[in-house]
Amino acid sequence: MTQQKILIVDDEFAIRRLLCATLTRAGFHPVEADCARAALSLAAIEKPVVVLLDLGLPDRDGLELIAPLSRGGECPVLVISARDLTTERVAALDLGADDYVTKPFDTEELLARLRAALRRAGKVVPHQVVQATGDVRIDLAARQVWKGAHEVRLTPKEWAFLATLAADAGRVLTHRHLLRSIWGPAHEDDLVYLRVVARALRQKLEADPARPRLIRNEPAIGYRLVVQPA
């Protein structure tokens, strides 16, 4: 089996070398680009399975590259962002980025995100049963949630929220995306709906609702359903 190619786009040499070493060790075949132009041509030639994209590039804004690099969702783009202003990350996700990691990041965490992105990209139909962390099992087809051996009853909105997260398990979904798909476009700014439903779900599903492990909040960005590490 040929190694999967990963395109690294970063202008910092040390980061590229670190990522190359990490990816090689994890069994991938890294390809490097140090600017937007190189990234676009390499993406066309090498056809990577995932792109790691730093938003601060010398020749163009990284946000512009998300659409061409993802080739219409065929190739997941993981954004590496060092800025602590969240608007840029939300913009990246809205523009079609699959996920993001923030500098400074753990290489282990990066690999986990990358594998999750690959799993999502590889699947043809969504998983029917999602095994989430904390022994929570979500059956999307039967519309059932199990915590351990017990089935948990959810309200329609709670189910819609959980199912939307589970269909993209492991991936961060922006507040706006969640609100639009659950309550409709007219409510895409009503953040309080999400907060209330998320809290109710945690009361029902989390082992300790004060320390949420299952439904993770990404501050000012969105929510993520944490899946059991395979």
């Binding site: 040390a14 670190l18 500098k103 400074p104 990041f105």
Partner: peptide, 11 residues
């Protein structure tokens, strides 16, 4: 400032 820290952490 964070770029070298990221590298260092990974290394």
């Amino acid at each position: 400032l964070r770029t070298p820290m990221t590298t260092l952490r990974g290394q």
